[in-house]
Design a protein around this nucleic acid. Structure first.
Lengths: 394, 394
DNA sequence: TTCTGAGCTGAATCGGTTA
DNA sequence: CTAACCGATTCAGCTCAGA
């Protein structure tokens, strides 16, 4: 793709982006005139998102997805235990001069975003604990009405290498209506069928964006440090918009919103300051093949079988720290501790480790080896796991 | 339990609450004097939590768990599809006049809470999307340093009856240190054990409080509208405090924090305005049987083990100066000198420095990198340290 | 062609002690 | 206070080389 001379980037085949709603024209227009101003559809606008949004007609957009800078405030380098260096987010666009500067930034773009939303429009914002509380409070102050907060539980997050905190395994999304009482779009049935027939919950398990989906440059480096998975946008767009709706992303980045919107037959508008991101996003979106409407019906999410750690049995009070577990024949004994480890014969460790140790065996399935007394009989602790499993699955 | 005449509620057997740290007195005191003021331990204080906290000594509490009112502002009643009425949270204490009143309330109690925290203390706050963004922003403004946000994913949430939103299936906790850079308690290994040997993530799956754990009055009505499950507090207390630490809960409610603290051998202080809750909580906590001391011994991290200098290994003659140490694959070699330094490739220094140098790595744990030959096999020199440790510990 | 193991990577506010 | 130094710390999933 040649260097851009105009201010906006238009995918080569923008004309084939066809909103699917019957009432829409067959050929998607490059712009839709609303009031005196034109609405630039299926294009990536350059420049500052507040200025760009303020130049757009009021009340013209059905949904906004925003992935603003997180204000991470990282200090030094971080190395993995194998001494390799973590490629952290250190871009200039993520640096702010303290909370108040970040708050001013947030209020400015939120105000502009709210102005361009239709009365029944909704907004999605994603963030982490570094910024999401400030953004959430600011959007409430601006008059948005929160409908849900959604947790994106990452199936494959980066671990905590130093062992000083919990693995940061999720990000938070806020779904908000422009106004309290607004008649927003929520495709309850579509999401329910996406979720194997049970209503969609506020926690979504999805992998991070990696593999073939992750945009790379010629040298194999990631194009954007925080590219979002298209599956996340798929669920958001499917649940909160109708085919043909206009979706605006003021922090367009690698263009995931545009790619998912095009695939799902929605119109989109991106705003992005960095030319490199605009170029990569335009190329990416141009290569997207929109789904047949029919294909939308068949999408299903996989649900992995949950793993139940032994610790849950203890936390839930099903076994009491201090009590003694025994083997089936009652000859081996071990004492349960509050962190769900066992201690016996001077060794401590997991149910599996201690089970192996007391037998002098190389390995052991502690779930079936260790028993507790219930109503006068010895019952394997695996019975307790089955109770939890049945509850979690239900 | 009789109606209270005094201002505080003391469980009948408060004297048996015994902090487990060796340095503590055998009988837990009703109060601990710090400076000029007394710290009321294992008691439920009445009245306003801000006033009560301000009457406590500064820097006297190890951990705070706070479950503030959620500011739900429900409009009208909520009915299930079968027309039964949902017993919603609509108590007077949960209504605030708009966001600014709630923010003033939040800042007041956060400021008071931060004052009573020890320098290395941490605070946990739980909330939902109605209030957590405001509380999170306020605590950042007050100087708290967020360590993690944690998602409590409910395995059995109340479904969304109207089909207009996602099932609200989680609540959010914020874990924050009093100050940036504070040396907080985090029992990494204990939590890892609790999670089957993999590090604990920021998303926790736990059932809501129901069944026998849920406090009911004589008529079978729930005593408190938002009683938290004890499993949640078990994990928090086990992970973020030591036995004998003082845990404060300024919104004590049904006393889950006190019950879990007592069970886990921690001292606790509750503050609660409503007499009915105080009475129920005191009765509940009095019935809690603390775990054995032995069960409270949790898996210790290597960080907490006494430090053995490598020089001791040489001094004791376990390794002989002049011999050659190698990496696990045998490719890197270094010669041991009498002052317990190594020399290789022209560089000399500690086991760590030379290990890093021969690999060209930024750092290296020499204990696990360097090996010596024992009975024909390569053994890491850390094995020798373990021998000394076992001897020192015994 | 298919399997296996080594290697790499991801929005990260990721030490503590002694001199 | 800073600086030096010790030494603790990772999970899931994809890619690719080699069998």
């Amino acid at each position: 793709m040649p260097a851009e001379t105009s201010q906006t980037v238009v995918p080569r085949d923008a004309k084939t982006v066809r909103p699917a709603a019957a009432a829409r024209p067959r050929k998607a227009p490059r712009s839709r005139v609303v009031g005196a101003q034109a609405l630039p559809l299926n294009q990536i606008l350059s420049g500052d998102c507040v200025e760009r949004m303020n130049a757009m007609p009021e009340g013209s957009v059905d949904m906004i997805f925003a992935d603003p800078p997180y204000n991470l405030q990282l200090r030094g380098d971080l190395h993995r235990p194998d001494n390799s260096k973590v490629d952290a987010v250190d871009d200039a666009w993520d640096r702010f001069d303290g909370f108040s500067a970040y708050d001013r930034f947030s209020r400015a773009w939120l105000k502009a975003a709210r102005r361009v939303l239709k009365p029944g429009g909704t907004m999605w914002v994603i963030g982490s604990y570094h910024n999401i509380f400030r953004v959430g409070a600011a959007l409430q102050d601006e008059g948005f009405w929160i409908l849900n907060d959604i947790v994106w539980r990452k199936s494959n997050p980066m671990p905590n290498f130093r062992g000083r905190r919990f693995t940061n395994a999720h990000e938070t999304l806020i779904w908000a209506a422009r106004d309290e009482g607004g008649k927003y779009t929520f495709n309850y049935e579509a999401l329910k069928s996406l979720n194997d027939g049970v209503q969609m919950r506020s926690d979504w398990v999805l992998p991070i964006c990696s593999g073939g989906e992750r945009l790379k440059d010629e040298a194999g480096r990631k194009v954007h440090p925080t590219q979002k998975p298209e599956a996340l946008l798929h669920r958001i767009i499917l649940g909160a918009t109708q085919p043909g709706d206009v979706i605006l992303d003021p922090f367009f980045g690698s263009g995931t919103t545009g790619a998912a919107a095009r695939r799902l037959g929605r119109a989109w508008i991106g705003i992005e300051r960095e030319e490199g991101y605009r170029t990569a996003a335009a190329k990416r979106i141009a290569e997207v093949k929109p789904y047949d409407m029919e294909a939308l019906q068949t999408t299903r999410s996989r649900r992995a079988a949950p793993r139940i750690p032994f610790g849950q049995v203890v936390e839930r009070g099903m076994l009491r720290p201090g009590m003694v577990l025994t083997s089936a024949d009652g000859r081996r004994k071990a004492k349960l501790r509050a962190d769900a480890t066992l201690s016996a014969d001077g060794t401590t460790g997991s149910i599996h480790q201690v089970g192996a140790a007391v037998q002098g065996a190389p390995s052991c399935n502690g779930w079936t080896f260790w028993h507790f007394e219930k109503d006068g009989a010895l019952v394997p602790i695996d019975w307790l796991r089955q109770q939890i499993l049945a509850e979690v699955e239900a």
